[in-house]
Design a protein around this nucleic acid. Structure first.
Length: 429
RNA sequence: GUGGCCGUAGCUCAAUGGUUAGAGCUUCGCGCUGUGGCCGCGAAGGUUGCGCGUUCGAAUCGCGUCGGCCACCCCA
């Protein structure tokens, strides 16, 4: 019989105790910022009807074409592990009739997503996202405010050198015309394009703008830019978004080539990058991104309600915090007291003492499984406690404990009934 | 899905194709019958990711596979 050797599935990882502090820190910051801006938290099922994503996120996107985890239920329904949150939240908005609430409805979330991809650093099959959705408001100030919220959260996490790449990809009024124009232009230069771009012309023209292939750069630079072809409404909207960003002095880079991979975006799209302090270039993966999606609610069967939102990747932020040596204080302070015991009578009394401390909300550590005093003090030392209570056979019989100051080594004997008070007194000093 | 680099103890790493794969850290125990840190001694921990081949002999070479990283693709 072969010994089974299990490991976590490809691209999925344990979040070990030593990393929990980063997740908790991020959660706390997101939670308080969201609260300040008037967002309410929402949780949705990890599984959803797969069609929510194929209709919402879009059939043409990589996420839907090849990255969804889909399972068939015994009843024959197809459910998908969410590859992103937005369609789930819109589903909930519609399902619970949230258009009867004061608009806009502002929601935030924090939880895992799943995409079947080839994993790399900062790119996993199970990864955590948090984000914000504002549903029921078309005013461009919302677009700017969402960007500001993302930016503020990263700033509060002490991440510096951030840059927001921003663009507008128009709406149903103007984008079809631009796409036709771009297609015609690219077709006239098709011979000089890379093979991927030749394919993109047919499948998703806008993505050509995102190509990093050198020979495509020149063609790109002379291509018609969407900003020049926005309809009046989109143009005015985008101008206002930028004015709001200028007003709050948020550093952004107008990037006419920024095209997001999700189908539902209209007008504003943006991504947030970290600039490497040496090279001054953005490194690798976006920390987050988002934009406006005015048609999604309708597409998913709701009313014609405008919306905008953003999502950020928790693991990518954690990775940056580690790389930049950003200190995260352990919220959980160390144990101030340790209880060491010797002998069966003392062990029995220990349980009562521990209970007294718990009631008084003083954290007390122990190692009841160990019988050697030496081993117990060793453990106490590793926990860096200030005081150690020692109870042996003699003390147990006299209803006493020894209180040892671990810094000075000074010891005194006190009555068990006074021990909580005495420790409390000393910890206050 | 395509291509490249890499997998040795919990961690960081050694070991020309040649005895029984080693060291530091960590963990546990002993020195000290009831007193921590330091020190000394000791133990535990490995099918060298896994499988198949080449060879008298494989951690080392080959093929496959799994996993990690990188690029493409795309995004968080």
């Amino acid at each position: 019989m072969k010994k089974p050797k299990f490991q976590s599935p490809t691209g999925m990882h344990d979040i070990l105790p030593e990393d929990q502090k980063y997740f908790k820190k991020i959660y706390d910051v997101v939670s308080s910022v969201a609260d300040f801006y008037g967002f309410s938290k929402i949780d949705t099922p990890v599984l959803e009807d797969a069609e929510i994503f194929s209709r919402g996120t879009g059939e043409a996107t990589d996420i839907i074409k090849k990255e969804m985890y889909i399972l068939k239920t015994k009843g024959g329904d197809f459910l998908a592990l969410r590859p992103e949150w937005t369609p789930s939240i819109i589903r909930a908005y519609i399902e619970h009739g949230m258009y009867n609430l004061p608009q806009p409805v502002k929601l935030w979330y924090f939880g895992p997503c799943f995409r079947y991809e080839h994993p790399q650093a900062g790119r996993y099959r199970q990864f955590w996202q948090f984000g914000f959705e504002v549903i029921g408001e078309k005013n461009p100030v919302i677009d700017a405010q969402i960007i500001q919220i993302c930016y503020n959260i990263l700033k509060e996490l002490k991440i510096k050198n951030l840059i927001v790449e921003i663009n507008s990809i128009g709406d149903n009024q103007c984008r079809p015309y631009y796409k036709k124009l771009l297609t015609n232009y690219l077709k006239s230069r098709e011979v000089s394009l890379c093979s991927d771009c030749k394919r993109r012309i047919k499948e998703n023209v806008l993505r050509v703008l995102d190509c990093k292939e050198e020979k495509c750069q020149i063609i790109k630079s002379e291509a018609p830019q969407i900003l020049d072809y926005l309809c009046d409404e989109c143009k005015a909207h985008f101008k206002e978004v930028l004015e709001f960003l200028d007003e709050i002095e948020l550093p952004y880079n107008l990037n006419p080539y920024l095209v997001r991979g999700l189908d539902y975006y209209t007008k504003t799209v943006f991504e947030i990058f970290y600039l490497d302090s040496q090279s001054e270039k953005d490194i690798g993966n976006a920390l987050g991104g988002g934009g406006r999606y005015d048609k999604l609610v309708k597409v998913l069967g709701g009313k014609d309600v405008p919306a905008a939102g953003a999502a950020l990747g928790v693991e990518r932020i954690v990775e940056l915090m580690k790389k930049e040596n950003i200190e995260v204080l352990e919220k959980e302070e160390n144990f101030p007291v340790f209880l060491a015991q010797l002998g069966s009578l003392a062990k029995k009394k220990s349980l009562r003492i521990l209970e007294d401390f718990r009631k008084s909300k003083i954290k007390i550590a122990e190692s009841l499984g160990r019988d050697s005093l030496k081993a117990q003090l060793n453990k106490a030392n590793k926990l860096n406690v200030k005081y150690c209570l020692i109870i042996g056979q003699k003390e147990a019989l006299d209803n006493e404990v020894i209180l040892r100051n671990m810094e000075t080594g000074h010891q005194e004997t006190i009555k068990i009934e006074n021990v909580v008070e005495e420790v409390k007194k000393r910890l206050k000093k």
